[in-house]
Design a binder for these strands. Sequence first.
RNA 1: GGCGGCGUAGCCAAGUGGCCUAAGGCGACGGUUUGCAAAACCGUUAUUCGGCGGUUCGAAUCCGCCCGCCGCCUCCA
Length: 493
Amino acid sequence: MSLKLYNSLTRTKEEFKPAKKGRVGIYVCGPTVYGHAHLGHAKSYVSFDVLTRYLRYLGYDVTYVQNITDVGHLTDDADEGEDKIATAAKKEKKHPMALAEFYTRSYFEDMDALNCIRPDISPRASGHIIEQIELVKILLEKGFAYEVNGSVYFDVSKFKDYGKLSGRNIEEMRAGARVKPSPDKRNPVDFALWKKAEPNHIMQWPSPWGPGYPGWHLECSVMAMKYLGKTIDIHGGGLENQFPHHECEIAQSEAANGVPFARYWLHNNMVTVDGQKMGKSLNNFITLKQAFSGSHERLTKSYSPLAVRQLILNSHYRSPLDFSDAALFAAQSGYEKITETVKAVRKRAETTGKDKADEKITEQLEQLREKFEVAMNDDLNTSVALSVVFEMVRLANGLLGGANTTAETFSAVDDLFSKLGGDVLGIIKGEYGNLTNASDIQRYELAISGLVELRNKARREKNFAISDEIRKILGSAGIVLEDKPDGTTWRFR
RNA sequence: GGCGGCGUAGCCAAGUGGCCUAAGGCGACGGUUUGCAAAACCGUUAUUCGGCGGUUCGAAUCCGCCCGCCGCCUCCA
């Protein structure tokens, strides 16, 4: 039984074997930091986060590189528009680097909330200008590129394999081209490696071809090569980047190095909101910060970051995902169900003894783990993997209802919860706290437990009018009471 | 116009030739439990997989046509 991944390059599921035994290098196209991250970013980066988490679970030593694009990504036509960062910086009246820094921090904040493990390396495009210039030089020397008016373009006609990833050929593209070709380019499908900067362009660097800045595709080739070698194991990214971005990365890298750029190409599908492509003009553009706070007119409430994560993992990474308030609501309920069970299991696992875990249960757990791995091995079927976690929830709740389960058995259950739902899927936390500030917790707990005690006194005296009133008051503050055989507990709704 | 994908219960979603008289979640309903609740547990909720034909002993799964939706081809994760 081994991991199979769908390779866009061959359009088939292939058994995954890294080039070096036991070690995996992954490069994923990161965000262009000119705005807050949105639901689309979440699907992409949660998907690749689960990939790296699962590879680590399988015992691989993974190096995960995900770039930050802070220069060179143009608006409009690939080679004619303005730099996205520069445009946003003008609007916000900030230095481009300040703007990039601001949104980089915002991005990490959101990804942390989604429980995405930080990449091992988060290289910035602007920090690799020298390397990018070097690559352009090599491509010029080898005759794959040409210089015109201080800009350098890649000559697509020189690279036979162009189109192999996206299944296109140059003739078709030329026929269907909607963009008017730049007069500098020999061929409309040629793309910019280095762009000449006008004097008022803030983001510019000296180069052998005069002051300028790198083309967008160049950074990924350079940084992947620098940190992972000339041939990387896995290259990931969004489906919309398959063409032209990834196609251009392949062309540049393979033309320069003469060896395959990436062995496995993985592409995640797109996100829609209420059935439509997410776009600023459609008023369905939802940032992660808006989803977490519920501050968007399409959302009826705020959603936990991990509920967003769970919704993403509820479907396959290669399927499109439609975000809607109803779907998020369902994910939130399911997420809370898992969370409450895990918390209860951990509480029962605290009282350690010398007993052994129930063998019948550990056998069941082992079967569940196997089912989970079979699902994940099949091109990361997180939907089925998640269903295994729910099966564990039902098993655990059954044990919680009974009286004879040992702490050791609960500990075994928690162990598997932590591995599968925690380490791999990232929807179960290592620790849960109702509030972040310790002294706040004490004060709230004191107040709430006082009211609970008062209510129980009323209940003992059969004064249910008073007891119901207290529960109602706490309920309106979002605190739910649960009367159980061993006492009353409370939790936040 | 070119290329690709999708259509499974009220909603989300897995399954892609026989183990499917189709996982799992949400919602709804009934039961157990409870002073009443909440939570949990048990049960019910698609004889059917957009429609129509075909291939096959056998199809949600393969083929054809039709209908509907979406994406890429221009920046987007």
